[in-house]
Design a binder for these strands. Structure first.
Lengths: 351, 351
DNA sequence: CCTTCGGTTTAGATCGATCTAAGTTAGCCC
DNA sequence: GGGCTAACTTAGATCGATCTAAACCGAAGG
C-alpha cells in the first residue's frame, strides 16, 4: 500500500487533448485504436502524446470498464519445476487472448494464501488459477466463491469446494506404475514412497496403485508407504533409516521425481548388490534423464496440463475456449532406475 | 483486457452507507481502520458490509490515492530453482512492509518482456525487479526509465542502463573456482564450461577465473570454454562431443549446476578411468548434494540475494530499508564431483 | 446562555479514464 | 438551397473509491 512517483506532474489524457484543442474522448479513441478517428487526428494525437511523455493509465481504464486483464496464478511453490512448467501452459493460452498472467507464491502457507486471494479479489482480477496450500480448507475459499471471481483449482482438490478442478489422472498414474513394476519387472513386494498425507494427489495415486498391485498378486510394504515431506532430502533420510532396518521392497513408486532422487541416493549408499529395487518417479522432470541412474518416471505433460487449465478458466469466464479441456493422460518413461535400461558405464544398476 | 462478473449488481461503499443512513466517507474511514470513527459506527458498518456482501475495491482506491501495492518481479525463467529462490527473499522483504509481489515470466523473450514491463507501467505498479531477458538492450528499458517506475536490475547487467543493479559477485566466484581447482586439486589445464555468451554473469566470472587460473600457472582450454546454452542437455551433448575428440581438461568450472549435471553425465559415459576431471558447478541447487556424484558448487545465498534486492528497491522507492544492501559473498561447497569427498559406494570418482 | 472544544460525520471535488447520446462538418443529390 | 448521409468529434455522466474543509453535537467553561 505504498508507491507513487514524486517529481513533475503526471500527464493525463486531458493534457494531450487540451494541447491539441481536442476532447478527451477523441484522445481516448486513439489510445484504444478505434477506427472512428481520422488518420490525421490519430497521428497528431500520437505525436503529441509522445512529446508530452503521456503514459496510458490502464488502472483508471479498468475501473471505468469494469474489466481487467490480470489473471492470478496462485501457487505454493514456484521452485517446483513441474508446477513452474504448468504455469507456462496457463500463460500461453491466456496470453493469447490478451490476459496478463502473474504468479503469486503462497509458500504453502494458508495465511499468505488467504491474503493473496483476498488481494486478487480486491483488485478485481479477471480470474484465478490456484494450487491450494496443503493445509487449506473449504473456508479459505469461501471469500473467493462469494466474490464470484472465476477460479480454477489446479492439481490439489479441497473437500467441500465445488470449484472446477484440473489435475493429473491419479488413478491412471497408480495403474501405470503398478503394471510396470509387477508385469514388466516382476516385483513381489512394493510401496508408495513419500508425499504429504494432506496432498490430494497422493491419496488417489496410492489407492489405485495399491489396488492394482494387490490384484497382480504383489505384497504391500506398509512401512515404506508412510507419508513424508515431498522433498529429496526427507526421502533420503527416511530411506536411509529404513534400509538400516532391513532390505527394501523390490519395487517402489515415488510420490515425485524429487522423492525418487532422495531414494536413489540412499539406495546407492548401502544396498547390497543382491537386493535390487526398481524405482519409479512421478512428473518426469527434465533432470531425471540426467540423473545417475537415470530416473524412470510417469509423466504428465505439464505444459498441456497448464493449457487445459487455462481453457477451463476461459470457459469459467464465459469466453470461447478452443481445444481440449481434458488433462493429458500420463505416460511411462522407462529408464535405468527401474532396471529397464542399463545404467551408464561406470555405475552399477539402480539398486 | 476482459473479465468482469455478470449476475447481481455489485455492492459499493455508497450502498453500505445508504443502508445505514451514513455517508460514504464514514464507511471509507471504517474500511481503512481510521481511529476517527466511533466504535459503535465501526461495528455497525462492518456488520452491514458483511450482510450486503460488500467487497472493498482496492483498484478504485489505488486510482484515487495514486498509490499501489503491487510490485512486479519480471524474470526470464521461473523454472530455474536459483532465481525461484531469489524471489522468496524479494517477497519476504517487500511483503513485510505491505507490498504484494507477483511474478511475471518473460520466457527470455524480449517482446514479451517489453509487453510485461509496459503493462506494469500502465497499471502504475509500485516498483519492478527484473532479470532482463538475454537479448535485451538499453532500448527495452527506455520506457521504464522515462516512466520513473522504481526499478532494480537483478543478476544480469545491461550495457547503457544505469538502473540500480543487484547480482552475485562474479569476480569472487571466478577466483574461488580458480583457487579451488588449482591450489586444492592441482589442476593443470582448465576451462569455463557453458553459459550463453550474452549472459552478463558469464563474462565477469570467466574473466576473473581465467586470470586467476593463469596466474596460478594452469593452462586454458579454449575448446571447452566456448559459450553454450545453460541447460543440462546442451551441456551433455557438447561434452560428449568434445570427449570424442580427446581427453577433457582436468578441471572445469561450469556456468551453473545445471550445466554441471550435463557434464557429469557425459563424463560418466565414457571417460577412461585414467583421466579424472574435477567438476565445479555454480549456484548450489538443493539437488546438487543428491547427485551422483554429488556436485561441488560455488554458492551465493539466493534468499539473501533476494532480500538485498528488495531492500534496494525499497530505497529506490524512497522508503526506509533496514539491513544490508550488499549481496552476500559466494562460498565454496566442496563435494564429490571435484574429488574433495569420495563418491558414495557403488560409483567411482567423478571422472 | 453563549462560546469553545474534541470527537465524529459529511458534502462535494477529485483521481484518470470510458460511454452515451448528441453535435458538427462536409459532400452529394435532386 | 435544402435535406440526407457518412464521418468525425464532443459534453457530461460515470466507475468506486479518497480527500479537504467544513458542519455537527454534546459537554465543559466562563
Amino acid at each position: 500500500m505504498q508507491g507513487g512517483r514524486p517529481g513533475v506532474r503526471r500527464v493525463r489524457m486531458i493534457d494531450v487533448a487540451n494541447s491539441l484543442g481536442l476532447s478527451r474522448a477523441t484522445v481516448s479513441l486513439v489510445m484504444r485504436n478505434s477506427p472512428l478517428v481520422s488518420e490525421a487526428t490519430r497521428n497528431a494525437v500520437l505525436a503529441e502524446a509522445e512529446r508530452l511523455g503521456y503514459i496510458y493509465n490502464q488502472a483508471a481504464a479498468n475501473l471505468r470498464t469494469q474489466r481487467n486483464d490480470l489473471v492470478g496464478l496462485v501457487m505454493p511453490d514456484v521452485m517446483n519445476p513441474f508446477v513452474a512448467e504448468v504455469s507456462l501452459g496457463v500463460q500461453e493460452v491466456l496470453g493469447e487472448v490478451g490476459f496478463f498472467v502473474m504468479i503469486a507464491n503462497t509458500v504453502d502457507r494458508v495465511g499468505l494464501q488467504r491474503q493473496i486471494l483476498g488481494s486478487l479479489v480486491g483488485h478485481r482480477a479477471a480470474g484465478v488459477v490456484t494450487i491450494p496450500a496443503l493445509t487449506a480448507t473449504a473456508d479459505d475459499f469461501a471469500g473467493l466463491r462469494q466474490s464470484g471471481l472465476p477460479t480454477v483449482l489446479l492439481l490439489r482438490r479441497i473437500d467441500g469446494v465445488d470449484l472446477p478442478f484440473v489435475g493429473t489422472d491419479e488413478a491412471a498414474i497408480g495403474r501405470l506404475g503398478a503394471e510396470h513394476l509387477t508385469a514388466v519387472h516382476g516385483c513381489r513386494r512394493v510401496a508408495y514412497f513419500g508425499g504429504d498425507p494432506l496432498a490430494s494427489p497422493r491419496v488417489g495415486r496410492m489407492e489405485s496403485f495399491r489396488r492394482a498391485v494387490t490384484e497382480a498378486g504383489a505384497g504391500w510394504d506398509a512401512a515404506w508407504s508412510q507419508p513424508l515431506d515431498a522433498t529429496a532430502d526427507a526421502a533420503y533420510r527416511r530411506a536411509a533409516e529404513l534400509l538400516e532396518a532391513g532390505p527394501p521392497p523390490d519395487g517402489v513408486l515415488c510420490h515425485s521425481d524429487n522423492v525418487a532422487y532422495g531414494l536413489a541416493k540412499a539406495l546407492r549408499l548401502g544396498t547390497p548388490e543382491a537386493a535390487p529395487c526398481a524405482v519409479l518417479g512421478i512428473d518426469d522432470l527434465h533432470q531425471s534423464a540426467m540423473w545417475n541412474p537415470s530416473i524412470s518416471s510417469i509423466a504428465t505433460d505439464p505444459v498441456e496440463l497448464g493449457r487445459v487449465c487455462g481453457r477451463v478458466l476461459l470457459a469459467e469466464m464465459g469466453m470461447p475456449a478452443e481445444g481440449s479441456r481434458v488433462p493429458p493422460a500420463p505416460e511411462m518413461h522407462a529408464r535405468a532406475s527401474c532396471g529397464c535400461h542399463r545404467a551408464t558405464r561406470p555405475a552399477g544398476r539402480a539398486g
